[in-house]
Each structure stands twice: as C-alpha cells, then as structure tokens.
C-alpha cells in the first residue's frame, strides 16, 4: 500500500515537472511572439506615418495646381469662381424614360412568393 502511494506521488511530481517545463517554454515562445509583433506594429506605424506624409506631400496645393495645368486639355479644370454656383432648378429633369419593370424584384429581407 505504502509503496503504491510513493509510486503515485512520484509519478504526480514527474507530471507536474513536465507541465512546468512545457509552460515555461510556451511562455518564452509567447514573449518572443509579442516582441516580434511589437516590432511589427512599430514598423507598420512608421510606414503609416511615412505614407501619411507622402500623401500630404503628393496632395500639396502647388503640385495639384501644376497637374491641373498640365492636364488642362483632358480635365479642363479652372479655379472655382462665384459664377460656378448654380441653382437646383438649373439641373435638367432626366429625359431618359426607363423601361417598364415587368420582372419580379426581390426585396432584400422581404418574402418572395
């Protein structure tokens, strides 16, 4: 009886030791991963900052103006002037007459017979 008790106890201790050993390595692996992720985050944030700066630089008013001048033939953009404001009445009523809808239309969420 007593020897069985000792056997069970030592098996238990060996089990615990194995568990602790595994947990230790798992923790170290997680820590390493966290470190890598943090480096990655830092890198991504740096990239975001660079992209933001680049976006602002590419959209600087001087450059846009030059681009507009260079592409005047295609875009025909001119500075916004008071005469460019219009009235909603000046927008033409659509003249296109659409075909009559004959096919059944599925309404999302609705019931279809």
């Amino acid at each position: 009886m007593r020897s069985l008790f000792y056997l069970v106890c030592s098996a238990f201790v060996i089990g615990l030791a194995y568990w602790a050993y595994k947990e230790n390595y798992k923790t170290q692996a997680s820590l390493k991963e966290v470190k890598e992720l943090q480096q990655q985050i830092a890198h991504e944030k740096e990239t975001i900052a660079v992209l933001k700066a680049e976006w602002a630089y590419l959209n600087r008013p001087d450059r846009l103006r030059e681009l507009v001048d260079l592409n005047f033939e295609d875009l025909q953009l001119i500075p916004l002037l008071p005469s460019h404001f219009g009235d909603s009445e000046l927008v033409g009523y659509p003249t296109t007459i659409f075909d009559e809808i004959v096919e059944p239309v599925t309404v999302i969420g609705g019931t279809q017979p």
Binding site: L75, Q76, L77, I78, L81, S83, H84, F85, G86, D87, L90
Partner: peptide
C-alpha cells in the same frame, strides 16, 4: 430677378 450668368464646368 436672379439672373445669374452660369458657366458650365466639369469638376
């Protein structure tokens, strides 16, 4: 009278 001269522009 609201007589305004409008210019057509693409934007």
């Amino acid at each position: 009278s609201g007589k305004v001269h409008y210019t057509q522009v693409k934007n």
